[in-house]
C-alpha cells in the first residue's frame, strides 16, 4: 500500500501547489479540544499534520510547545491515549497523512518495534523524532520504522555540514524537514536570507521533497519560500493563535482562518 505522505506530496507536485504541514500537541489543551483543533486545521486546508506525543523533556522545543507538552501531561495524557487518538482520527482525515512527532525516549520506552507497528496500524504515516540520528548504531530506528511502512522524517538545519547532509540524504524517506534557522521551535521570525543557499546544499544530496519550518508564521513568509521548498510547516504559531482567542469556539475559527490564509 502506498504511503499517504507520498501520495500527498505527489499530488501537490502535480498540481504545482505548495503544501502546508501543521502541528498539534495531543491532549492540549485537553483531548477533546485537540481533536477539534486537528479538524479545524484540516478544514483550513492543512495537507499534513504532526501529532506531537507530549514528553517531559522536549529539548528541541521552545516555550510555546514546551508548555503545551507539560500541560497535556499534567492533564494525564498517556502514550496509549495518543495512539488511540490517531486510531480515532485517521479515518476522518481524507487524504491528509498524520505523523507522530515526539522524542526518542517515548518510542524507546514503549518498545521501538512495537511503537512503529502500533503507529502504522493506528493510521500514522510517518515519524518525526528529532533526537535519534539515523546513523546512531544501536537502535535500528530507521529500519524498524520503514519495515512498519512509516516514513522516518529527518531534520536538517543551516548548521548541517555537507557531510551530515550527505548522511541524511542516504536515509531520507518521505521528505526532509529543513529548519529555517538554527534554534529551537517557536514563532520567532526567521531571517529568510541565505535560505536558498541552504536548500541548494540540501538538494545536492537529497532527492525527496523538502519541508521548511521553525519561525514560519505568516503568508508573506510562505510566499517567500514556496518556490524553494514543497511544504511549509507551522507549529508554535497554531498554538499561539488558538491561545490568543477569547474562547474555544473562536480559537478554532482563528486556527482554521490562519491556515486558510497562509497560501494567500
Amino acid at each position: 500500500m502506498k504511503n499517504k505522505i507520498d501520495s500527498k506530496l505527489g499530488a501537490l507536485r502535480q498540481r504545482k501547489r505548495h503544501g502546508l504541514m501543521a502541528h498539534i500537541v495531543v491532549g492540549y489543551p485537553d483531548m477533546a479540544t485537540s481533536e477539534r483543533i486537528l479538524l479545524s486545521l484540516v478544514d483550513g486546508g492543512a495537507d499534513m499534520i504532526e501529532l506531537q506525543i507530549p514528553f517531559t523533556d522536549p529539548i528541541a522545543d521552545g516555550p510555546t510547545i514546551l508548555k503545551a507538552n507539560l500541560a497535556s501531561l499534567e492533564a494525564g495524557t498517556k502514550v496509549a491515549d495518543c495512539l488511540e487518538f490517531a486510531r480515532r482520527m485517521a479515518p476522518r482525515m481524507g487524504d491528509v497523512p498524520l505523523l507522530f512527532m515526539t522524542y526518542i525516549n517515548i518510542p524507546f520506552s514503549y518498545g521501538l518495534e512495537k511503537f512503529c507497528t502500533d503507529s502504522a496500524s493506528a493510521g500514522i504515516s510517518g515519524l518525526i523524532v528529532p533526537d535519534i540520528p539515523p546513523d546512531e548504531p544501536q537502535e535500528h530506528y530507521h529500519e524498524l520504522a520503514t519495515a512498519a511502512g512509516l516514513h522516518p522524517v529527518y531534520i536538517l538545519s543551516p548548521s548541517s555540514t555537507d557531510e551530515r547532509i550527505e548522511v541524511i540524504g542516504k536515509y531520507a524517506s518521505g521528505f526532509v524537514y529543513c529548519t529555517a534557522r538554527v534554534g529551537i521551535t517557536g514563532a520567532r521570525e526567521s531571517r529568510m536570507a541565505g535560505l536558498k543557499q541552504f536548500t541548494g546544499r540540501v538538494r545536492r544530496h537529497v532527492s525527496v521533497p523538502l519541508a521548511l519550518g521553525f519561525g514560519i508564521s505568516n503568508a508573506k513568509q510562505v510566499a517567500q519560500v514556496r518556490d524553494i521548498v514543497d511544504v511549509s510547516v507551522v507549529g508554535s504559531k497554531v498554538i499561539d493563535t488558538f491561545n490568543s482567542a477569547p474562547d474555544t469556539h473562536s480559537g478554532l475559527e482563528a486556527v482554521k482562518n490562519f491556515i486558510g490564509g497562509l497560501r494567500d
Partner: peptide
C-alpha cells in the same frame, strides 16, 4: 558508547 549506554542522541542541528 559504553556498552549499550551513552551515545549521541541529539537533534541533528547539534551533531556538527
Amino acid at each position: 558508547h559504553f556498552g549499550k549506554f551513552g551515545g549521541r542522541y541529539v537533534p541533528e542541528m547539534l551533531i556538527p
